[in-house]
Design a binder for these strands. Structure first.
Length: 418
RNA sequence: GUGGCUGUAGCUCAAUGGCAGAGUGCUUGACUGUGGAUCAAGUUGUUGUGGGUUCGACCCCCAUCAGCCACCCCA
């Protein structure tokens, strides 16, 4: 115990029960992705730091990336997010890819942050993107995918909500308040921090970036205006389409949603537990990213969901059923030395029938073998003792109802395959 | 990166500066061919790690590592 080498801070072990959840989640989000016609892909886990340097935002690159120098002197980062890789991959084969392009992925990411509840340094993320169109229908689809996922895993609109805003709308409103294009990014940052700072500190911060008293009051009004979306033709259109799909209860307009990543250009959104906590997923429209990494301009929209927060949320609302860890539902016992060979032969025949089987891997007392099967939550036990060997039959016990019968091998296979 | 809380048996947690404990689990038996339930007996420790104070440290002090919470940021 004392000589155990500790795991890396913020990295998690996936014991079988954790892996069962990860696989379950992978299957669920894969099902939803495929339901909308999305194709699975992946990017490399390593990228040049410069891919993120210009596009993702200062903090993510300078403070939160795992970076190292390779032997050739290149600065390499463990990917902190996928969207820049996606943009690069699209730009690389722009002339051969078929657009609109619908891609999804589920894989590991790394960010050098302080681990705590809902946040680790190594985490898995579902990324889903629709690239090559800038349309309100595309925006709607991405939101519908988020809603469908929530429905699919059993999270209701009373429990979670997708808050949405439109950066174009905000840009127009802020410009009409006399805020220059140059300070727009600063004001976005200001808005993004509103609920994270004290009122006084926020006012001071606003003053520091050159916002006048009058403008500050106007911005505050703007951020209180839950009806602001009505000024956006895009948001009105999107809400209408989502209403038609029955997803409107999941949606909520919120002028405070801005998002920290610099590359978002249109609608931005994030999903949360209605009772608070970290964002479950977040995303938005990025119409310049592919162009920024050297491709022809191509718009895109997508979002990312981390495995840590969604697991906490699903556990909180008891959305995860029993996830079987043992793949075999049948245990073949080894009664004594004489019955080992016939028992192993029977197990092999059952496998030929396509049924996963475990053999107790040594001769042992039956109570011990039964207990093992029970604790593994296996359904059936096959006993092949001297009596069965003589009669040419096997005993099959169903641990669910405790009933046991002596039958032929064919009948046993029939029993356990139900 | 900043501030705070915590770390004792496999797990959950006790123990005024004075013999390190309980529940649960595990092993065995009651039941020599049958799990879950019950009962009985047994078992489990360099108190995260390294220093210091003290006659004596799980307890006080320092450092360090890890987890958690609030910031920061975000999935």
């Amino acid at each position: 115990m004392k000589t155990l080498i500790q795991g890396v801070k913020g990295a998690r072990d996936f014991y079988p029960e954790d892996m069962a959840f990860r696989s379950w989640l992978n299957r669920k989000l894969g099902d939803v992705s495929r339901m909308f016609g999305y194709q699975e892909y992946d990017g490399p886990f390593l990228e040049r730091l410069e891919l993120y340097a210009a596009k993702s935002g200062e903090e993510l690159v300078k403070e939160q990336s795992f970076v190292f120098e390779d032997r050739g002197g290149e600065l390499i980062a463990l990917r902190p997010e996928l969207t820049p890789s996606l943009a690069r991959m699209v730009a690389t084969r722009q002339n051969e890819l078929l657009f609109p392009l619908r891609w999804w992925s589920f894989g590991p990411f790394w960010r050098y942050e302080r681990p705590q509840k809902g946040r680790s340094r190594e985490f898995f993320q579902w990324n889903i993107d629709l690239v090559g169109v800038n349309s309100r229908e595309a925006d709607t689809e991405m939101l519908a995918i988020g809603c469908t996922f929530f429905k699919e895993v059993g999270l209701s609109s009373n429990q979670v909500v997708i808050a949405i805003n439109d950066r174009e709308l905000m840009e127009a409103e802020l410009t009409s308040l006399g805020i220059s294009n140059e300070s727009l990014k600063d004001v976005y940052r200001l808005i993004d921090r509103r609920e994270k700072m004290s009122a006084d500190a926020w006012d001071t911060y606003a003053n520091d970036i050159g916002i006048t008293e009058k403008q500050l009051l106007d911005i505050k009004d703007l951020l209180e205006n839950k009806e602001l979306w009505k000024k956006s033709a895009a948001l009105s259109y999107i809400f209408n389409l989502l209403d038609g799909m029955g997803f409107l209860p999941y949606m909520q307009y919120d002028p405070n949603i801005i998002r920290g990543l610099d590359y978002y250009t249109g609608i931005v959104f994030e999903a949360r537990d209605r009772e608070g906590g970290r964002a479950i997923f977040g995303g938005g429209r990025y119409d310049n990213l592919v162009g920024d990494v050297g491709g022809q301009p191509a718009g895109g929209i997508g979002f990312a969901m981390g495995d840590v927060v969604i697991r906490l949320t699903l556990e909180k609302y008891k959305c995860i059923g029993e996830l079987p860890v043992a793949p075999a539902k049948v245990l073949v016992t080894l009664f004594n030395q004489e019955t080992v060979a016939p028992a192993i032969a029977i197990a092999a025949k059952i496998r030929t029938a396509g049924i996963p089987v475990e053999i107790y891997p040594e001769v042992a007392k039956l109570p011990k073998q039964f207990k093992y099967a029970d604790r593994q939550k296996m359904r059936f036990i096959l006993v092949l003792g001297p009596d069965e060997v003589i009669s040419g039959k096997v005993s099959v016990k169903d641990l669910l109802d405790g009933k046991q019968s002596v039958v032929s091998l064919a009948e046993a296979i029939e029993l356990i395959s139900k």
